[in-house]
């Protein structure tokens, strides 16, 4: 009888572990499939000209201005949404637990997660681009800054959500220990809790970056796009996703290849960042322990 129970439990365990491994394999398979398609279709466009030529169809176009633009816009967007998101998440987890206000913000944050990106772009168009146009009498209209604000709105709820969850999971003993030493709350939050939850918070920031780096729709009405290289945050600026969008609709198959190559670049860019961030984080953690 008990041997039977044991056997059943054992079998269940084996089946569950097998299915779990199959799930991971399946996800990896899809990743390999999509990456393979991207590489094989973009490979003919991968070369020096991708990084040296601009999108203005000088001979066969490249992506130089779009790469620079995306780096600037994405960096500004993360710089805007990471601090705000982490602090807002900390507020929810450390100051607003169980309060009505906290619950409301948490709920609204989840709704913001699913806001269609084009709607957020339009919102920023109304609150940033149009006032800017009016204030400068048309000399500054669309801008990289407006684009990064729109992208920040897309990344923000991801960071808030993950920071909140990760801080809540820090064991209460850590808080008790720190408080009993007389550490002020802000120090506790910043130096103890955020450090303990650091890997999770970093995951949130990276997921946010991954999500906003591929967005096209909100940029059309904010950063607008530029066939030439622009560096100023107040200039109209090109971006990789927008360039991909333009190139895929082009009649010329060579342009489609550039689009696929651009997509590969975005993916590799986010991959590189998450590897670097994880490496830095891991080193920091070990050096503190």
């Amino acid at each position: 009888m008990s041997a039977n129970v044991y056997r059943r439990r054992y079998a269940k365990n084996v089946v569950a572990q097998a299915l779990a491994s199959a799930a991971a394999l399946l996800a990896l398979m899809f990743l390999a499939w999509i990456l393979w398609v991207t590489v094989s279709r973009g490979v003919q466009a991968i070369g020096v000209s991708l990084f040296t030529k601009i999108t203005a169809y000088a001979d066969q176009g490249g992506l130089a201005n779009a790469i620079i633009g995306s780096l600037i816009i994405d960096a500004m967007a993360i710089a805007l949404c990471a601090p705000v998101g982490v602090l807002a998440g900390a507020y929810l987890a450390e100051y607003a637990r169980g309060t009505r206000m906290g619950e409301t913000i948490r709920f609204l944050n989840d709704i913001l997660l699913s806001a269609p990106s084009i709607v957020l772009g339009l919102f920023v168009y109304v609150i940033v681009v149009l006032p800017m146009t009016a204030a400068t009498n048309g000399s500054i209209t669309f801008s990289a800054l407006a684009g990064s604000i729109a992208l920040a709105l897309i990344g923000l709820p991801v960071i808030v959500r993950t920071t909140d969850e990760m801080l809540q999971l820090v064991p209460s003993t850590l808080r008790e220990a720190a408080l009993s030493l007389g550490i002020p709350q802000w120090k506790l939050t910043v130096q103890v809790l955020m450090r303990a939850a650091g890997s999770g918070i970093l995951t949130g920031v990276l997921l946010a970056l991954a999500r906003l780096a591929g967005e096209t729709a909100p940029l059309l009405f904010t950063a607008f796009g530029n066939n030439y290289t622009a560096l100023s945050p107040l200039a109209k600026m090109a971006s990789l996703p927008a360039a991909i969008y333009q190139y895929t609709n082009d009649p010329n198959p060579a342009m489609h290849a550039i689009a696929w190559a651009g997509a590969l670049l975005i993916t590799l860019f986010v991959l590189a960042l998450s590897l670097i961030a994880r490496a830095v984080f891991a080193r920091q953690k070990t050096s503190h322990e």
Binding site: L31, T203, G214, P241, W260, I266, T267, V270, L271
Partner: peptide, 11 residues
């Protein structure tokens, strides 16, 4: 697997 999140949605 996290990389799946990094692939732009247009792709």
């Amino acid at each position: 697997i996290e990389l799946l999140a990094a692939i732009p949605s247009i792709i």
